[in-house]
């Protein structure tokens, strides 16, 4: 026998294409509690069964593509790896905070991507390219752990009050995590240039170690630690 339970959703709705302003819409969904439903599964069911106009992004449905970050009962997270069983029966869902809303749960991530691009998130190595791989010791490779796993979902950066205030000037935790990923990569020889690029009152130093980023990261990464490392490295340069 399937054990049926009811879930109550309150979901942020906005479509510039119709004449309504922003509102919260309620949906009730019945589900079998033995089904191990994730929040994304519930949203898909709302879209399929109750309301095809509800818009949200999704792709891999396993927490690696970073499409379905949203604000779930006040906290940013990925819908696809948030089990319904971890949530109360009443679930409020809003788009990621601090960014313009395109429609419903879809936000405009342009400034987030711009801040990522700003840190030159690619390896710079001006030495002649060897015939085979560049060597890297397992210890040096280990320094990349905690950085390269970032999925660019935006949960951290849009949870950061410093980013809300200065989205155009403060790089934000996701971008800075990648800045540090290349600073600590033994194969990269542009460390000085990278640090100098970030040396102004805003890019890095607007981080006030509030640590919302660490709190919400669905991959359990620690951008604050990376930001502190950038600050420390900056102290070493004249």
């Amino acid at each position: 026998m399937a054990k049926v339970n009811k879930l109550e959703f309150s979901i942020y709705r906005y479509n510039p294409d119709d004449d309504k302003s922003v509102y919260m819409q309620d949906y009730t969904l019945e589900f079998d509690i033995e089904q191990n439903l994730m929040l994304l599964g519930a949203l898909e069911r709302i879209k399929d069964e109750l309301d095809p106009t509800l818009s949200f992004r999704r792709s891999c449905r396993e927490g690696v593509c970073g499409s379905d970050a949203m604000n779930i009962n006040g906290k940013n997270g990925l819908a696809c790896i948030t089990p319904i069983s971890s949530l109360p029966r009443k679930i409020a869902i809003r788009p990621l905070p601090g960014l313009p809303v395109v429609r419903d749960l879809v936000v405009d991530l342009e400034i987030f991507y711009k801040q990522y691009a700003r840190v030159k998130p690619y390896l710079i190595n001006r030495q002649p390219t060897p015939k085979k791989e560049r060597l890297q010791s397992p210890e040096d490779r280990k320094k990349l752990n905690g950085h390269y796993e970032c999925i660019l979902c935006g949960a951290c950066t849009t949870a950061c009050p410093s980013f809300w205030w200065n989205p155009d000037k403060f790089v934000g935790p996701a971008g800075l995590l990648q800045a540090n990923r290349f600073i600590v990569d033994s194969r990269d020889d542009a460390e000085l240039e990278r640090l100098q690029d970030l040396q102004d009152p805003f890019s890095v130093f607007r981080c006030r170690t509030i640590m919302n980023c660490v709190e919400v990261c669905p991959k359990k990464l620690n951008p604050t630690k990376a930001i502190n490392n950038i600050k420390k490295e900056m102290l070493k340069i004249k």
Binding site: Y122, K131, E133, R134, L135, S137, P138, R141, D185, R187
Partner: peptide
């Protein structure tokens, strides 16, 4: 594969530093 490594792909490493 070497090209990807040169682009910066963070391959896991052997003790001798190779991929």
């Amino acid at each position: 594969v070497y090209e990807l490594e040169h682009m910066g792909l963070p391959f896991s490493r052997n003790d001798d530093g190779t991929i």
